[in-house]
């Protein structure tokens, strides 16, 4: 990683957030796909919670990625 990345403290602190959000979305998507393929019956509440979590973390991911682009791009 070049030194320029560290020119912005905010952008630097966003790095772990991007990574954790990415990892969280991937794990949640894997769980959803696994449940769908295997045919796990989820209650409507659990389904909504799962889909809501994916949407929330995905939006967080998008926001932080855009923040990094606009801050240090």
């Amino acid at each position: 990683m070049s030194n320029v990345v560290f020119a912005s403290g905010a952008a630097l602190s966003a790095v772990p957030v991007v990574f954790v959000a990415l990892l969280s979305v991937v794990i949640l998507l894997c769980v959803r796909a696994w449940g769908g393929v295997v045919g796990v019956k989820l209650t409507p509440l659990v389904t909504k919670l799962l889909d809501g979590s994916i949407a929330l973390v995905f939006v967080l991911f998008v926001v932080v990625v855009i923040f990094r682009f606009t801050t240090i791009g």
Binding site: V18, F19, L22, V26, F58, F61, V62, V65, R68
Partner: peptide, 8 residues
């Protein structure tokens, strides 16, 4: 997420 995550 993988594509934009790597880009970012």
């Amino acid at each position: 997420v993988l594509a934009f995550g790597w880009l970012s």
